[in-house]
């Protein structure tokens, strides 16, 4: 659930836009380079974007008695790294802002920052950290997607608390208020997103071994896997 149109004061809207722009520009460059150097990855890029499309259209009920939706950004961040996900996430947010009146153009910068930049980077960071500790792939994928989803809504809460500090309790009071609306609602949804991302990754491991090896998701450490990669 994104910040609605017009619900950030102009100064905040502009500041978040300025903060997001370089990430998106850098992402567009990474994306064009990826497509130029590896035209065969276009399909998987499309699939990653499609996953975000599906998940951010699914409004699910949560334990707090309200509804929110997952983001689907963890998968693309793990496969293609966060800069490329910044572009795919921005496209999804634009679609929703223009056609669905969900999110908005004035709040696009802030929403891009939370869903397409902060979330993917946080999820990717956790994924890399766990991989470094030799945690099984699917466990790292689950936590990567879980963190990408949950951190997105934590950032949204911070953005709103910065714009609307509580008159009595200040920034922290407002953060508690928005956090209980967004972040708590999101916990079970982030679990769902983690599980769905694991399902897609399992299907990818079956169907696209070569691609995942090239992207560094599947390691060619053991000899057996190496042979398999060579055979392909």
């Amino acid at each position: 659930m994104h910040i609605a149109e017009g619900f950030l004061p102009p100064a905040h809207a502009i500041a978040w836009g300025v903060a997001s722009a370089p990430f998106v520009v850098h992402g567009v460059r990474s994306l064009t380079r990826e497509v130029r150097e590896h035209p065969e990855s276009t399909l998987l890029l499309g699939a990653s974007g499609a996953f975000t499309f599906v998940l951010s259209a699914l409004k699910l009920p949560s334990v707090t008695g309200s509804c929110s939706h997952p983001t689907g950004t963890g998968l693309g961040a793990i496969l293609f790294r966060p800069p490329i996900m910044a572009v795919l996430g921005t496209i999804t947010l634009l679609f929703q802002a223009l056609l669905l009146a969900h999110g908005g153009l004035t709040t696009l910068g802030a929403n891009v920052f939370s869903m397409a930049i902060a979330g993917p980077w946080a999820g990717y960071g956790v994924y890399r950290l766990l991989r470094g500790w030799d945690v099984p792939l699917m466990v790292t994928v689950f936590f990567g997607a879980f963190v990408a989803d949950l951190s997105t809504y934590c950032v949204t809460s911070v953005q709103l608390a910065l714009a609307f500090p509580d008159p009595g309790s200040g920034f922290l009071g407002a953060l508690g208020k928005f956090g209980s609306i967004f972040a708590v609602t999101q916990v079970p949804l982030a679990v769902s997103e983690g599980l769905l991302t694991v399902i897609v990754m399992r299907l990818l491991v079956q169907s696209s071994k070569g691609e995942l090896t090239r992207l560094g998701v599947l390691l060619t450490r053991s000899g057996e896997r190496k042979q398999e990669a060579v055979a392909r």
């Binding site: 659930m1 994104h2 910040i3 609605a4 619900f7 409004k59 009920p61 707090t64 008695g65 309200s66 509804c67 929110s68 969900h102 709103l160 609307f164 500090p165 509580d166 008159p167 407002a174 208020k177 928005f178 609306i181 967004f182 609602t185 999101q186």
Partner: peptide, 17 residues
């Protein structure tokens, strides 16, 4: 019940300001 979290945030904003 089960309204969108974004609508609830809008309500919270109008409560604060």
């Amino acid at each position: 019940p089960f309204a969108g979290a974004d609508a609830e945030a809008e309500t919270a904003i109008t409560e604060i300001e």
